[in-house]
Structure formats: C-alpha cells, structure tokens
C-alpha cells in the first residue's frame, strides 16, 4: 500500500489486513521500491500523484521486477490523464479506482484482480 496521505495509507492497510492480506505500507514510491525485495509483493495498491516518483512510474518499475504483480491505481485527482496516457504509450495499462471508495469495494477490486 503506497500513498503519501499517511492516514489514508495506514487505515487502508488496516482494512486490507483484516481482509486477510499481508500488508506493507510506504508513503512514497522510492521506499516502496527499496522494501519490495524483502517483501516480495503479489499486489500493488498505489496512489498516483506523489512526490519524487509517481504511482505509475512505481507500477511500471515493479512490473519489470515482478511480472506476476497485480496492480491497482488509486487516485483522487481528475488531472492525471496525461500520466496514464504516458504509461499507455509505453505499453502499460493499469486499472484505476477513484478516491473516495468504500473499503469493501476496494477489497473486492483487489480480489477481482486475483481471479483475472
């Protein structure tokens, strides 16, 4: 779970843990990359607009390291179309969930990724 909004990151992680996910929280893209090796993630749930490294860049980088990684982007901003367009041109298309979202829907969206 990666989001620079700490309260949102922490509460989302608590909810995911309750739903049975083993969850690691970081508040920016670079520390997510740093900690990925020790954690070996199956899923990435990340905010998009973050300092230093945005969520899409993080997703693209981690996909290369973990080809099986299931990714869900999570954003509260409308003005991210050009970031998504850039990743689409690079051949990456990630599902996107708009904030705010009810916790149950969030968990279901993640589980749905497993089934696909």
């Amino acid at each position: 779970m990666v989001d620079d909004e700490r309260i949102l990151a922490d509460t989302t992680a608590a909810i995911l843990r309750r739903a049975g996910f083993e969850t690691m929280v970081t508040y920016d893209g670079l520390s997510a990359l740093d900690n990925a090796a020790s954690f070996n993630p199956d899923y990435l749930l990340t905010d998009i607009m973050m300092p230093v490294m945005n969520g899409v860049e993080l997703a693209v980088t981690l996909t290369k390291m973990y080809p099986a990684l299931r990714i869900l982007l999570f954003s509260g901003q409308a003005g991210i179309a050009n970031i998504l367009e850039k990743s689409r041109q690079m051949g990456f298309e990630f599902p996107l969930l708009a904030k705010p979202v009810h916790p149950m829907n969030l968990v279901e969206s993640l589980k749905a990724l497993r089934e696909n």
Partner: peptide
Amino acid sequence: NNPLASVLNLIFL
C-alpha cells in the same frame, strides 16, 4: 477526495 477516503476507512474500522 483524500480525506474523504480516509474518513470512509476510519468509520469502517
């Protein structure tokens, strides 16, 4: 939207 998302999470918890 960020604080609203947090509020939804907090009430749920």
